[in-house]
Amino acid sequence: MDHLTALENKSIFIIREAYFRFRNIAMLWSVGKDSTTLLWLVRKAFFGEVPFPIIHIDTTYKFPEMYRFRDEYAKKWGLNLIVGRNEGQVEAGMGPGKGTKLDCCNELKTNALKQIIEKNGFKALLLGIRRDEHGIRAKERVFSPRDENFKWDYENQPAELWDQYKSTAAEDNHFRVHPILHMTELDIWKYMKREKIPLTELYLSKNGKRYRSIGCAPCCSPIESTASNVDEIIAELESTHTSERAGRAQDKEDAYTMQKLRSLGYM
């Protein structure tokens, strides 16, 4: 069995396992390459029919290309799409220019998701995160419990040996399930190439720049790149040493700095 097939099998096993154990689950789709790959795997796992809702958290600040892509494929793939928006905060004008970026993420992403989970009583969510994305994610489990405040207690997690996943938790908890945790950025691109998975054009070079990681438009910066198709992206990644989320790092640092300064009475 080749490498990509082995990765695919593992992911499909996890997806089916999660559905079997929890039944009332949903998947988070950011419309980025990772969660679109995950969605592809979910479709494969259930032979084209996705048996649970797909959630898109809409901060209202996504790129227009992302909204177009979402609507096109939600229709094409017959998805039960739930669009989650923290309406109260959107109306109040929350945005990256108001409050800190941390506040903005908190309200428009985290709290929007909390509202959906509460409303639908989901027991587990499938997420397309990968271990190589960020240092902290290396500590993630495939089945990762969260408490009612979404808190992830990474110092107290079940061991996951020989694909034995723990799926019972305290009453108020829900699980995050990470079927592509074991894939790397490069694996994703190679798999997308093999499967011809559609992607938004934001990832492809235009005027010498492309996005390596996408989210909300005001908080993403493109990287210098001439890679205008998947093959060129793979070639580029095989020779790069900068991290995938470099375009997002500055914002995180600024958000941290702002929180620190505020706690000491500045700002």
Partner: peptide, 14 residues
């Protein structure tokens, strides 16, 4: 100081 404005704007930078 700990913060400044970006040139020709009122936007904060650190």
């Amino acid at each position: 100081g700990f913060m400044e404005l970006l040139p020709n704007t009122y936007r904060l930078t650190f």
